[in-house]
């Protein structure tokens, strides 16, 4: 049997910076979503009112999370490519759930810190980066998200990079 590696990573950053959406997208694009999961997503589309499919519903597995539209506790998701198997921890962004964020981040080899391009580097971005460093996570990626909402401005991107 061919031997494949394992990469464990977590997504962090403040509430609404796009953690769950990024994971939903990775699962969707790697064809790791099954038909019944997509169906369940469609069925639940109305719970937060919008009537639109919300990829965040994939990882917000608890009723309270779906109703309030927030992530309370870490959710784990799995996908694989021919070369690698991935374990993702979708960790909560609210400061009062930091202990759950730390739980999910503690076993990661890589931490992705999401930053909303409009808001830039904020307290939670710094807190989560500091936690990644305290936990000695070997790799950290800062991902500037929602670039569409700043008209893909390279100047804004560079500003955030420099601030970091």
């Amino acid at each position: 049997m061919s031997s494949i590696d394992l990469l464990r990573f977590n997504t962090s950053g403040s509430v609404d910076d796009g953690k769950s959406t990024l994971i939903g997208r990775l699962l969707y694009d790697s064809k790791s979503l099954m038909e019944d999961q997509i169906e369940a997503l469609e069925r639940s589309a109305d719970i937060t009112g919008g009537g639109q499919i919300n990829l965040a519903n994939l990882t917000d597995g608890l009723r309270a999370e779906r109703e309030q539209g927030i992530t309370i506790d870490v959710a784990y998701r799995y996908f694989a490519t021919p070369r690698r198997k991935f374990i993702i921890a979708d960790t909560p962004g609210h400061v009062q759930y930091t202990r759950n964020m730390v739980t999910g981040a503690s076993t990661a080899n890589l931490s992705i810190v999401l930053v909303d391009a409009r808001a830039g580097v904020i307290e939670q971005s710094r807190r989560h980066t500091a936690i990644a460093s305290l936990l000695q996570i070997p790799h950290v990626i800062v991902a500037v998200n929602k670039m569409d909402l700043v008209d893909w401005s390279e100047a804004r991107f560079n500003e955030i990079r420099d601030e970091f």
């Binding site: 990882t59 597995g61 608890l62 309270a64 309370i72 506790d73 870490v74 959710a75 784990y76 998701r77 202990r99 759950n100 730390v102 739980t103 503690s106």
Partner: peptide, 24 residues
Amino acid sequence: AKERFFSFRDSFGQWDPKNQRPEL
């Protein structure tokens, strides 16, 4: 997908998903 390796149950055998222990 939300549950810990060690999942605590109270004296009624119940799981409280909103109040799970840290597991580092």
